[in-house]
Amino acid sequence: MNTFGKTIRLFLVDGTPNSLTTAELSNWTGIGIKVPRIKVREFSTRPEFRKPGVYILIGKGDNNEDAAYIGEAEIIADRLAHHIANKDFWNEVLFFGSKDQYLNKAGVKYLENRLHQLALSAERYTINQNTPTRPELSEAEQAELEEFLSNIKILTAALGHKIFESLEETMEQGENNQLVLFCKNGAGAWAKGSPSTEGFIVYKDSLLIIAEQPSLPDGIVSERRKMLAEGIIETENGFYKLTKDYIFTSSSRAAAATLARSASGPLEWKTEEGIQLKHLEI
């Protein structure tokens, strides 16, 4: 499928990134708003706050993990005031509406349901809420809202939150398909992964060495401990086994976590034919 470049216009209302930011796409009737919780009251009389829309409350969960709440409202300002009084976890909100009268109640409820679905599928943020109801809409209405949805997804990422972006969308593609690499050793480590725009993804069911060598950096020791505590890896048959796809910040960090020692990712990660990652990056 062909993709086309897009122009995003960001406007910092107070001239700083710590206040209200508007985001618009060329030839799109929608608008995105990012605003800190402590600034909501200050800007709540702006026209964008007085319209229907969908919103994402962004913050941290009980275990300091990224967390979000997705909702819809006929008047955004009123719903945000309610959440300020009743939800403590969030410190920033993103919301999306229309510069004209395009969005109605059914439309924003449809978008709420689909955004919730995308967030759960991406598995990047904790989403602690029931699945929103999706209204019955015509095929034509759904098609228009899906286009609106795709622009919300783009702007959410551009505003700093990849809550709706799956790991697969960040992966490097080979000449014909997904570029898949392997990291193995004679002790039984076996990991499968792919380069990503965010670092390096190691796939579910990869096997990591448990016994850590003195050369393993302290930061990776801590990350493995955290992964174990959060159930991202679990002990199975003498190895740590990944329970889900996991992204490391670099190929070297992914290789070191797999081999439990200091390691160079460009050398350790190889194709099935034995071609090292370093020869694929040049």
Rank of each mutant, 00 (worst) to 15 (best):
M1T: 11
M1G: 15
G5V: 05
T7V: 11
I8E: 11
L12C: 07
L12P: 09
N18A: 14
N18Q: 11
S19D: 12
A23Y: 07
E24D: 11
G32N: 00
I38V: 06
K39Y: 08
R41F: 12
S44V: 13
S44D: 07
P52A: 10
G53C: 03
Y55M: 12
G59T: 00
K60T: 07
D62L: 11
A67K: 12
A68D: 07
A68P: 04
G71L: 01
G71A: 06
E74G: 15
E74W: 03
E74F: 05
I75V: 15
H82F: 13
H83S: 04
N91M: 08
E92Q: 06
F95Y: 06
S98E: 08
S98D: 13
K99G: 14
V108D: 02
N113F: 15
R114N: 10
A119D: 03
R124L: 11
R124E: 10
I127D: 01
L137S: 07
S138I: 07
E139V: 14
A143K: 15
E144N: 13
E144R: 09
G160V: 08
G160Q: 02
H161A: 10
I163E: 01
E165S: 12
Q173H: 10
E175H: 12
F182T: 07
K184P: 03
K184F: 12
G186A: 07
A189K: 05
A191G: 15
K192G: 03
S196M: 06
D205W: 09
L207M: 08
I210A: 03
I210R: 04
P214E: 15
L216C: 00
L216P: 01
K226Q: 12
G231D: 13
I233R: 01
E234D: 11
N237F: 12
T243P: 00
T249I: 10
S250F: 05
A254H: 01
A256F: 08
G265K: 01
L277R: 06
